[in-house]
Simulated assay, not measured.
Amino acid sequence: MTSSPLDIATLGGQTMGTTWSAKLVAGRNRDLHALHAGIQARLDTVVAQMSTWEPQSDISRYNRAAGGWQRLPPEFFNVLQAAQAIARSSGGAFDPTVGPMVELWGFGAGAHPQRVPAAAEIAAVAARVGWQRLELRPDGHEALQPGGLQLDLSAIAKGFGVDLATAWLRQAGIDAALVEVGGELAGYGRKPDGAPWQVLVESAPEEDDAAGLPPRVLALDGMAVATSGDRWHRFDAGGQRYSHTFDARLGRPVVSAAAAVTVVAEDAMHADGWATALTVMGAQAGLELAEREGLAARFLVRDGNGLRETFSGAFAARMEAGA
């Protein structure tokens, strides 16, 4: 009996306040409903564990806890451990304890109208923020709640959701797929014609209108890509643009953030987290860190002449290699 011909199937749905999609290579008689349900179930797991919008999620329960060691589900703990590692390597440019600050400025689950808080308010909240206050016990998947610590993993959880869905598709016998959650992507395997999955690197609104920069196309085969920047969520006040990306070191959103920062990595969780960290650091310091860490990163920044593009050596190598 011959195997059924392979087609590219497209699935999609809702998760984490955004959408997800998956293109996968499967036989024509494959049960796509089961594959869809499997992906949605993995993404629902991320929401149930790491969404601050869900009062009964594991992260919400941790944030409400009075103090002491809190046992976490393994997925939640793994993401938190990765977030801590990125925080340490970036000198706090990425900070998973930024929750109270996000709410103060009018972003996040407890959002009120976005505003610039008074200096005293910022100082009071800053005293409750700091990745150094978070202690982890890997053996028991435990995290210390020192009292008043509020985690926010929104800058890394979508990427992890991509990884979780991708891993499940592999286990389900899907040999090639491209998975996307809210703009974060991971791809593996080849399409039926033997070509890799190709994606266009996300840009800035003005770049979409042709800014003279060449489009950057990446081939994803066992790789992931994430983009952070100010085109998604921001507000303007007093002639200043504030992005939804926070610099916990300063107690405020990043001012005049890069239009887009893209990171390519082996998994979407790290690509997602590092894209945020490098956005906080800014193009110059971020590029220096990317070179030291061997990160494949692209920065798109605004200057007086429009948009300027810079990228790390690892990113240039990926473009040259077509992967």
Rank of each mutant, 00 (worst) to 15 (best):
Q84V: 14
A83F: 04
V47I: 13
Y242P: 07
G238Q: 12
Q240N: 10
A111S: 15
L149T: 07
W232N: 05
Q14V: 10
W197P: 02
F235N: 02
L218R: 00
A297E: 05
G238L: 12
G67N: 10
L43P: 00
A316I: 12
M16R: 04
A109S: 13
V79D: 02
R298H: 14
H244F: 12
D209P: 03
A37Q: 13
R231C: 10
V225S: 05
Q145T: 07
G282W: 02
S57Y: 05
A317N: 12
V102R: 03
L250E: 15
S89Q: 13
R88S: 13
S57N: 08
Q40P: 07
D44K: 06
T97Y: 01
G147T: 11
A66C: 08
E320Q: 15
S57R: 01
A219I: 07
R190T: 15
E135P: 00
S312H: 04
Q70F: 11
E206A: 14
V179D: 01
G182K: 02
P205E: 12
V125H: 00
E288T: 14
R170C: 06
S60C: 15
R128E: 12
T19A: 15
A186M: 11
W69D: 00
W20Q: 01
P55C: 09
D303Q: 11
R88I: 14
P146G: 10
N78F: 08
A165D: 00
